[in-house]
Each structure stands twice: as C-alpha cells, then as structure tokens.
Design a protein around this nucleic acid. Structure first.
Lengths: 205, 205
DNA sequence: CCTACCGATCGGTAGG
DNA sequence: CCTACCGATCGGTAGG
C-alpha cells in the first residue's frame, strides 16, 4: 500500500545523506572536538542548510551520539577487523596495535584518532555523550585485555604478566602514539611506537 | 616622580587579579578545553566584566597563551619540583611519574591534566597556541628521557634499554592514567598505573 | 530537504 | 577595571 519504489528511493537517499553527514562530522570532530562541531559549520562544509541537519538528527546531542557510533564503525573496520585474520592471542594483540599505528599513518582523519580526543574531551563532562564514548573505550580495552589473557594462558607471554597492567600499557602506547603523531605530523614518531610495542611484547625486530 | 605607593598598589592588585583570572581559566580549560573557554563565561565565573578580561589580555589567543604558561607553572610545582629532592636517575624518574599520579588523585584540576587534553586538542590546529603547548610537552618528555639516560648509564636500568622508547612508554602511562581517571573518577585506576610503572621499571612492590 | 526567523552568546571595541 | 555597544554565529523552531 504505502510501500512503493519512490518511497524506497527517498529512504535510500536519506540514508546516503545521513552517512555523508556523519563521515564529514567525524572528520571535523577529530580536529575541533565533539563539542567543537557546530551545526552551521558542518552544514556549510556539506553544502546543505542547517535545518537539513536538524531534519536528520533533531538536536546537537543526537548528532554527537551518531558521530560517536560512526567513528566506532570506522575504527572497528580499520583497526580491529584487519587483526581478526590473525590468530587470537599474541599475534592478534600485536596486530591490533600495529593496525592502529598504520591507521594513524594513513591519515584517515585529519585530527588523528577520534576516540583519543573524545575520551579526554568528554571525560569530565557527564552525560549521554560521555557514556557513549566510555562504552566504546571499555569495549576496546576489553578486547586488548582478553587477547592479553589468551597470550598469557597459551604461554606466548610470561605467566607473571598481568593482563590488566599490560592492557593499561598498550592503551598508553596508543594514546602516546596519537599525541606524538598529531603534534609532530612525523611518521617517524610511529616507528618509535612500533619499536616500543615489539620490545615490550618480546617480539623480534 | 611617577612612582608612588598608590601606583604600586594598583600594579600589585592588577597582578593579583591577573593571577586569579589565570588560575580560574586553567581550571575551566581542563574541562572545556583551551578553545572551549569563552571570555564571557570566564568573566562570569570571576564576577568581573568581559572588558576587564580584555584589559588584561587583549585577545582570546593571548589569554590562551597565558593560560598555558600558568598551567605549566602549576604542573612544574606539583609534579616536577617535588621529585627534585630525589636522586637523579631512576629514583627521580619514578618520583616524577608517581607525583603525576598523586597530582591526579588530589584533583587539583576538575578536568584532570591540562596538558594531556591540550596536546590532543591543539595537535591538529597549527598556530602559536599549539606551539606553546608543544614547547611544554617537549620540555617534559626531555626531562623524562634525560632521567632515563642517567638511569641506564648508572646501571640502575638494563644497558639494553633505549631511553627514547622508555620515555615513550612512560608518557603513554601518564596519558592512559589521565584518560582512565577522568573517565572513571576512580582512584583505583591510579593504582593500576602505579603498579604498571613499578613493574615496568623493575622496582619492588 | 528549504527559507526565514528566534533569543542567546560569541570575540572584540569605544570611551571612559 | 566599568557600561554599552558591534556584527557574526550559536543551537533550535515554524512552516512548508
């Protein structure tokens, strides 16, 4: 009755526009921050009107939540999924960290890692936006820690390693790599990160 | 001729006001970011008029530069100087990192470490503000690396340690400690940081 | 998705 | 340090 090809096209177009908005917004937010995005600036960058954005997201907060989800999707695609070809345990653990360094090197986003910035930006601002960022962060650190557990259990890492401490150190390397790369724009800072990683995990270089 | 007690009082008052402005601004910036500070909001928090702020700093950028300097002063006082009582080398290296974790635990600033946020916020925004942040970052990492070199040279750390990699790892721990503490507001996250630090440097716990 | 509009706030200035 | 003001932009809404 109500379903017709025309309506489907409209919906598909709407989704495509929505996706284009979010990709641009993630890119913008990586530079100016999640709160630094303005609807007017984003609309201008996309060549549409402000009210077009409101038609899609209603409020700025809803836009921010959608931006976090989109950034999470991109992060998963670019750094988590590539490592899933590797064996669980040490190989995949190293793979994720190296995929992150490669991700920075490819300059996917102009402001480096979206989440590194978002965690420090939103950490002291309670609310749904912070919670959404925290959920992603917990998910990521959880993966790292689980892989560390597997590496320890299988003897790929020393039995006296503690996965909680190792996960802390590795997320630290990821944050430091992002901070250094974004500050210097120099890929050699990523080589430091790669060498520190392999040395810490006792891998030949 | 022109110098009189009245003028001196005025200048001293001016400096006191300036200092009060900067302390409040550092605190505010630790939450909303260096660019997130607005002159109006800051003036309201201080109970003075916007033009009072302009009388002191002229432009927002000048205010930001002064805020960075003030934050640097506070950081030096709270985390670098306390460690200078300790012997150069390993003891002071550990001391600085632990002083940083204590600094977070005392909640000196409501948004955690000012510089951790500022580095990620300004990293991809070229200009004098970024350069001022970078200068402080380079100074701090330089101290860490120098202490690591001394610890290696004196045999307190293994001869096959590389100070560049170790400095990278320690700044990573500092960033991760800040991110976790700010996100969870849980002091136990700092215990993880302390344990990871001492384990990494081979210190008994 | 659009134009046209709202009150509030932005950084900054004039003049004291 | 103040009041009073500037043009620009903010997030958001009305009505289509």
């Amino acid at each position: 009755m109500t379903a017709n090809p025309n309506e489907k096209r409209q919906r598909a177009d709407g989704l495509r526009t929505r996706h284009a908005i979010l990709v641009e917004a993630v890119s913008l937010a990586s530079v100016v921050g999640l709160d630094g995005i303005s609807i007017g600036e984003l609309a201008k960058a996309l060549g549409i009107s402000k009210s077009g954005l409101y038609a899609h997201f209603g409020t700025k907060e809803n836009l921010q939540l959608a931006v976090i989800d989109q950034a999470g999707l991109m992060f998963a695609t670019d750094v988590i999924e590539p490592a899933e070809k590797l064996d669980p345990g040490l190989a995949r653990l190293v793979g994720i960290c190296e995929a992150f360094f490669d991700y920075l090197e490819r300059r996917v986003l102009p402001g480096g890692c979206f989440f590194a910035g978002a965690v420090l930006e939103m950490g002291s601002r309670p609310g749904p936006v912070k919670e959404r960022v925290a959920a992603f962060q917990n998910m990521f650190v959880g993966i790292i820690r689980e892989l560390a557990d597997q590496a320890i259990a299988s003897g790929q890492l020393p039995a006296n390693e503690e996965s909680e401490l190792l996960a802390f150190e590795l997320t630290g390397m990821i944050l430091a790599a992002d901070a250094n790369f974004v500050m210097t724009d120099d890929v050699r800072s990523l080589d430091v990160a790669r060498r520190a990683l392999r040395r810490r995990l006792g891998i030949a270089h």
